[in-house]
Amino acid sequence: MTTRSEPAADRTDPSLGAIMSERRRLINLAYRLLGSLADAEDVVQETYVRWYTLSREQQEAIVSPGAWLTRVAGRICLDLLGSARARRESYVGAWIPEPLPDRTEWLDGRPDGGGPADPADRVTLDESVNMAFLVVLESMTPAERVAFVLHDVFRYPFAEVAE
């Protein structure tokens, strides 16, 4: 026996799609700040927990949910980077970054990637740029790292980052 179900729009939160569409961007932000995909996913999960603990009125009062989620994720990353656990865990060997599951997120969005024509040269260039980027991030303090990634990678103005 089949029953007629309600349309999907009636059962779900209308803003759910807008909130969940930010997931990839939040994971990229947290990964670039923390250097660990597992920690990045934990940060995004905590960010969503904080969003859904807000009352309906508080959620509706937020003009830009994406900006709110980015701000909260950045602050959680900053807290995590400054925590005692992060200070205790210092690797003594050469630090090798984790591979990302989707490398297209690192490209600048152009179909040709704007790089060399030979695919092997492109891979070598991508790896060296990624490693240089991670070395620069590793040399920064947590606050500098958050400001750098939000401004230079995600193009937030410094005034908004400072808030």
Rank of each mutant, 00 (worst) to 15 (best):
S55H: 10
A84F: 05
Q58F: 04
I62C: 10
S21H: 14
S21V: 03
S90G: 03
L81R: 08
E60R: 15
A117R: 14
D79I: 01
V129W: 08
A117T: 14
W95D: 02
D108L: 02
G93L: 06
Q58T: 10
G66V: 02
L78M: 12
S90R: 13
S21T: 12
D118V: 12
T47C: 03
W51Q: 00
L26C: 06
G35W: 08
G113L: 14
W95R: 06
V123D: 12
G66F: 04
F133C: 06
P119H: 00
A73D: 04
A84V: 09
V129K: 06
R103C: 03
S21K: 15
R50K: 13
E98F: 01
P111H: 09
A73N: 02
A84I: 03
G17M: 07
E105P: 01
D118C: 12
T47D: 02
I96Y: 11
V63A: 12
A67V: 15
S64R: 15
R122G: 15
A117I: 12
D102F: 05
S90L: 08
R25E: 10
G114S: 12
L16C: 04
R103G: 09
A117S: 13
V43K: 05
A94M: 07
L100R: 13
S64A: 14
V44P: 08
E89D: 05
Y31H: 10
G114V: 09
L26S: 06
R24N: 13
G114M: 11
L137R: 13
E98R: 01
A38N: 01
T104R: 09
D108T: 00
A117G: 07
Y48S: 07
N130A: 10
D79Y: 01
V92Y: 11
E105Q: 14
Q58V: 03
D121C: 06
I19E: 04
D39H: 10
T104D: 05
L29K: 07
V43Y: 02
T53E: 13
R24G: 12
L125D: 06
T104P: 00
R88V: 01
A61R: 07
E46K: 01
E105L: 15
P111Y: 05
M20G: 06
R85T: 06
E98H: 01
P97Q: 06
S83C: 14
D108Y: 00
L125H: 04
V44M: 08
A38D: 09
R32Q: 07
C77M: 08
W51G: 00
R110C: 04
A38Q: 03
P99L: 04
V135A: 13
